[in-house]
Structures are given as C-alpha cells and as structure tokens.
Design a protein around this nucleic acid. Sequence first.
DNA 1: GATGAATGAGGATTCATTCAT
DNA 2: CATGAATGAATCCTCATTCAT
Lengths: 230, 230, 230, 230
Amino acid sequence: MPLSKFFCKPDTSATVKRERRKEARPGELLAAALDLFVEKGFAATKSEEVAARAGVSKGTLFLYFPSKEELLKAVVRENISGRFKEWNDEFLSFEGSSAEMISYCMNVWWDRVGATKASGITKLMMSEAKNFPEIAEFYQREVIEPGQTLIRRILQRGIDRGEIRPLDLDYAVFTIVAPMMFLILAKHSPGICAPMTLAMDPKKYIDTQLGAILHGLLAAPAATSSPDKK
Amino acid sequence: MPLSKFFCKPDTSATVKRERRKEARPGELLAAALDLFVEKGFAATKSEEVAARAGVSKGTLFLYFPSKEELLKAVVRENISGRFKEWNDEFLSFEGSSAEMISYCMNVWWDRVGATKASGITKLMMSEAKNFPEIAEFYQREVIEPGQTLIRRILQRGIDRGEIRPLDLDYAVFTIVAPMMFLILAKHSPGICAPMTLAMDPKKYIDTQLGAILHGLLAAPAATSSPDKK
Amino acid sequence: MPLSKFFCKPDTSATVKRERRKEARPGELLAAALDLFVEKGFAATKSEEVAARAGVSKGTLFLYFPSKEELLKAVVRENISGRFKEWNDEFLSFEGSSAEMISYCMNVWWDRVGATKASGITKLMMSEAKNFPEIAEFYQREVIEPGQTLIRRILQRGIDRGEIRPLDLDYAVFTIVAPMMFLILAKHSPGICAPMTLAMDPKKYIDTQLGAILHGLLAAPAATSSPDKK
Amino acid sequence: MPLSKFFCKPDTSATVKRERRKEARPGELLAAALDLFVEKGFAATKSEEVAARAGVSKGTLFLYFPSKEELLKAVVRENISGRFKEWNDEFLSFEGSSAEMISYCMNVWWDRVGATKASGITKLMMSEAKNFPEIAEFYQREVIEPGQTLIRRILQRGIDRGEIRPLDLDYAVFTIVAPMMFLILAKHSPGICAPMTLAMDPKKYIDTQLGAILHGLLAAPAATSSPDKK
DNA sequence: GATGAATGAGGATTCATTCAT
DNA sequence: CATGAATGAATCCTCATTCAT
C-alpha cells in the first residue's frame, strides 16, 4: 500500500484505468458471453469473439475463466437472480384482485427479467440444456421451480378467493408462463414468432394476452358462449 | 402412418430391404440430422454422428449432401409442410363455431405437426435462425407467414360473425400461436417449461389453454368483466 | 469381405498402400514419438513433429492416440519388453562361471536392449518420471524390479558358489546396473559422459568395465593391494 | 555452510532481511530455477513457477533475466564450479596411494558436488543438452573436459607408479565417472536406478563401488584371475 | 525497482471434407 | 456406390513476455 494512497488526492485518471478494469473484467466478459451465446449458440461462439466483444484479447478471457464451459456456467449463475424470495414476499403482501395480481406479475417480470439481458439465459437454456445437463439442473432448481411455485400460489389464492375458476394448477400455470416464454422467443429469435415486418411491442403484447387469459377471446354473451354456435 | 402400411404386403426379401434402404438413404440422413440438430444444436452435432445414426459412414453423408450446411438446409426444406394451402381449403369449408374452429385448429396442428418430427424444425430455427439468415428467411416465407395468415383468417371470421371480441389481430394471433410454441419447447427442451417431474400431456395442455383462451381464467360473474372492453 | 479376396491374386500394388499403412501407422507413430521424446524431451516435442516424422499429418496422430500424453504412455508400454521371464529362464539354465555369467548378462542386455530403441525408454524416464508418476510406477514394476531381481540372483548364485565375494547385494547390483545406465546416457546424451571427441565403442566399454568390476583396477599383487602402498 | 553462519550475528532487523533479499534475488531465482528445471525439465517448467518459488512475481524474473533461456544459461553458468584448477592443485600435491586417491576423489566429489544442488546441473544437461547445444558445449568445456582430464591424471599416476594395471585410459576414466553419474541419477530420478523401496545411502554406495572397482567382485583366489589379462 | 494484468504467438486437439480403395 | 483413413483449417487453451501502474 503505497503512501501515495494517503497523501495524494484519490487516483482519478491514469491509475484508475488498469485497476478499475481488473474488477470490471469478469462482468464485461460475462456480458459479452451472454450476448454471443444467446445470439449464436454456445458451440458456434468462439472464445476469441467473446474476448473481442469485451474489448480484451483471447488470453485475458482465460485469465478469468478456466474454460469456455466454465464461462458458460458463470454466465448462467451470474444472470440467475435469486430474486424469487423477494418476489414471493412482494406477492404475499399484495392486496389487489387476482386479475391485478396476474397483470402485475407479468408486467413486473417483463421489467425485471424479460426486458433485461437475463432473459437471454432462458433462450440459452432452450438450446443448450441438452448439452449441459449439469447447468440445466441448476437452472431447474433456481429458476423453473421457484418461478412455477410463485405462479401456483397466485392462482391458488385467486381460486381460494373465488376470483378464479377452479383449475388444474399443473396446467394452469402454463397459461401464465407460455406468454413469458413467447416474449423471450420473440425478443431473441425474431422471425420465429411473428413476421419480421411486425415490430412487437412487449407491453402491448402482455396487455392483449392478459385480456385473453383473463376474459377469454369470446364475445360478451358468455353464458351461452361456445357450445351451440353454428 | 401411411396407408401403404395397410395395403401393401410387408417387405419380405432382404434384397428388397437393401434396395429400399439405398433409396431411403437421403431420407434416413435427413431424419437423423433433424434429430441431432434439434437435440444438440447444429454446431455441436458432428457430421459423423449424423451418418452413424443413419447407419451409414461419414463418406456417404457427403455423397448425398455437399456440406453440413447444405444438409441443414435440406432438413428444413424437407420438413416444412407445404400443407398450408390444403389446410386453408379445409378451413374455408369449415362450418362450425369459431370456438370449435380454434380448437380444431390447435388439435389438428398438434397431430400433424406438433406431435411429429416436423416440430423439431421450429425448435431448430429458434436456435439457429441467427446463424443462417438464408434459411430463416425461407422458414419465414414458408411457415410463419402462411401460418399466421391462416390464424388471422380464423379470428377475422369469428369477429365478423360476432363470436369473437373485436381484437387487434396483429397481437391476437399470438394468443393461438404462443401455446403452440410452448408445446414445442416443452417437447424438445424438457425442463425449460415445466419441472422435470411433470410429464405434460399435450392434449390436456391444449384443452386447458383453450379453456383459458376462449373463456378466460376468471370466475363466472363474467357479465361485468367483459363489457368494459370495447 | 469382397470375393476378389478369393479370386484375385493377393493385392500387391495399389490396394496395399492404404490398408497396409493403416496397420503400420501406430507402430510408425510410436517409433517416431520415441525418437523425438528421447531426443528433445516430452514437453519440447510438438505432436506435429511426431506426425511429420512418421510421415503423416497432425490429424492422423490423434486418430490413433487420443492425446500426446496417451501417446507417451503407449510409447513406454510398447517398448517395455516383458522379456524378463525369458531371460530369467535363460539364466536359470546357465552353466558357466559367474564371471562368464555377468559378462554374458551385460553383453546380452546391450544387444537386446541397450543397442535398440528400447534403451530410449530409460533415457526418457530419467527426464519424465517426475512429471508422469503413473508411468514411472509402471516402469518400476515392469523394468526396474524384474531387472534388479535378475541381477541379484546372478550375484547370489556366484556367492553361493564361492566365485564372488560376499557382498551387500542391495548395493552390489548397482555395480552391474551403473555401467548399463552409463551406456544409455552415453548413447542418448553424447557429451554428457565423455568428450564429444571420443566415439565410444559400447562393446569395448563393456569389456573394460567387466575387467574392472571383476578383477579391480589395481595391479596384480592383489594380496597386498591397497593398504601399504607408498 | 558458510563461515559467516558462525561469526556473524544473526540477521535481526526486518530491514536487513529485506535489503539482503533484494540483493539475493538473482541467486534465489537461480536456485529456484535449478530446482524446477531439474525436477520437471526445462520446457515443462513455467517461468511463473520459478518466480513463485523464489518468492517474487513473474515480472521480477524478467527484470533479472531477459528470457527463460537466458535463465537456463545463467543457471548452468552459476552452478558450474570453476573449482577444477583448485582440485587439480589439490591432487598434484596428494601423497597417498592411488587407491586412496581414487577414494578421496569420489568422496570429495560427492561432498562438494554430488550432494549439493550443483549436481542438478548434470541431471539437467542429461535432459536438455540436445535442445541447447550452445549450453551443452559450454558444459563440455567447463565440466566434462577438466573433470575427465583430472581423473585421467590420477589413473596415469597410478599406472606410472605401478599401482594400477595398465589400462586404456579413454575407457578407464568411465570406471570412475560412471558411479558418479549413477549417483546423480539415483538422487534426482529416484525409481530409475533402484526400486523405490530402497533408500540408497550415497556414502555406502561409494564405498561398495570402490571395493568393486579397486579389487573386483571376484573372490580371493585372485592369483589366477588377473594374470590372464595382459 | 516490483507487480501482475494483458497480450498473442504457439501448440494441442477437433472435425468437416476429401479421396484412394 | 460406400467406406473410412487421411488431411489441415479452425478452435481452444497455455504461457513467455511486456508494460502501465
């Protein structure tokens, strides 16, 4: 610890560059890796590309991650928020109707996950789960299970309060989950979900789906709805 | 299950089998390639694996397809049903209610595409579209656009007949499409959609989603819920 | 198995080249590897060099050996003759004097091991034993132990017959072993043992050493030999 | 064990230790390098390991030695005793019998070289001479030639005095040299010379070999054994 | 001086593709 | 036609060396 640390004004210019970078490196590399793995797939991404996108050289990547595969693991670990407990608490104290709750749930998910880079992880797992069972299992435990549990609780609460029809929850959760997955696909694989000509607005999509999910597509005279049309 | 199964006498002589195989080679290679590309991704699949699964040697693969990439193109081309025109006609003459039509649409799609290997193509495009723009464009043209047009027509017909609420069709089609994509994901990336402990029954899933999509999740006192729309 | 095998005269020209080579490859590669590992050390030898010396390309090497390290193991395994049992039998039935036996032992060792490529293995182990303990252990078991046991028996027989002075056999074996090691060094590390100007003749060296070992360096009046000189 | 150990007061202040170390750096690096080069070979030793063992950072190593290869040269240069002239003088004035002289020679060599780190240089040259001809030549000139000349003189003196049988000196020197080389091997490549179960005592080994070399292995009735020579 | 973060040439290994058989 | 041995470009990864701090 050089004395300059005490007597000089805190390093502003030059000193910073190297030292600050050192701490920033792993993050920059993880971000670059996430981008590229999501964009091109794990196998099709060269480690040198990752390094280049992070603004460093090949060698530097391996200074921070011992192998490309460990980099992938780190990417997944890094981007899996352990935020489910926090969300759980948030929903435990939620006071509104089930419709509001579901709406809130999907919108919050979009803002905090779907719209962020973290959504790329799900896209990544879609392609790579089979190749990296160990990572897939981790993803299962950290994301899928807590997520579905959370949604299940929301629906159960709605059923208990008489706001939601009694449903087979095993399948009903997918009614909430499917649009989320669809949004991720639409974001990361444009052209797979919609014609490239349509620039989908996620918030509008969520709104529309909420309308369908909550009230159905069918027109008002609901009592008579489907059976006897013709 | 082709009709030939019922009308032709079963293959008897070995000679037949062998000659049959020779002609079947490209098809077997395409099938093997589809399986593996879907399972492990294009880049992570070795051409030798494809050959091995098709029961031929590495060299033979390149006898039928000039390169791994051409093989991918052929796989996509081969598995894209040009059946949209036929389906279109089927729906033009459909006589039931919109609810029945949507239900029929999803179930037929599942039987003819979702449940078959052809569904792998969609999974494949999810991962590889970015890497093979040429193929992606082809897929767009041959699958996405006709598919969405078909669904659009069904919904438009429903709106015209007063069976379906007036909707922004650009987004409403996703209400039908999203569950299909979700099913494909659930089939090809188990563990991404649901906990591995749940063995999802696709037909039951379709049924449940149809219930939600058509009538909404909310409980009976619907009279007050839908009117405010519009 | 093509019928040509039975009806055509055995393939002499073209057919041979490829097929014969396939079986010859591993041997050619092992020979090349032994040469180079001995010459330059394991770490300093590039796999491409090994391949080149065997007259094939880089890739071919890895067709036969999964890694450079496995190649090293194979080299050691290949060159460690399990000939000790055969030698043991040879010596069990030996009829001459102990002097003859020791002389025969060293000369035979030189002809069958020292003068052959197999001697390179010992040179190799001198440098690499520390880096590859697994291989070193194998070498211990297959070479060192049987070899020393054999020599021990020869000396014990000589002592029993009163031809050899009673000796601490643990150390006496080295009297036989050391010249062998020295010959290997002289062969594989010229300049380490003798000035480069002297082209050592191994047979002559063995003879000289046998003279020294058996009769000592000191002049004839042996009874009075060393103590009271000067 | 330098005399300073006995006459100087032990280092007390930290400052001293640190400054001492600064000056000692090159020496510590050379010592570390010798250890590691001997243990693992030149190519298999990483410069960072050398630095670490010397307790400094990678960068510091290159502050003192411009390259890994220069480090090797320095290691060899540093550890080659220029003591041959001094030894030569010692032997010129030696008064004992040839047997005593040879015994003294080997024991002194062991104490001053064999038992010290300097012996590693010989081990190092065994492995690396081929890769660094320049260093090998230096070693030749500085070690092999003076060493063998010294031994030659001892033997010649013995022959002249009638204590040693007339011998081809070119080969007779090896009778003295081989046990030395063997000791170095036994020290640095345990398991190459003897079963790992035997912890060889160098002094005892030297004694035994002297017995063999001087008097031969054969039993007493020597009168008949030596005359046939000549 | 000393450090250790960064570099990039170099070596191990893979795998699409070729081609002699 | 079919094969699979051979190839070598491409990729992962290492490590000697540099240089800003």
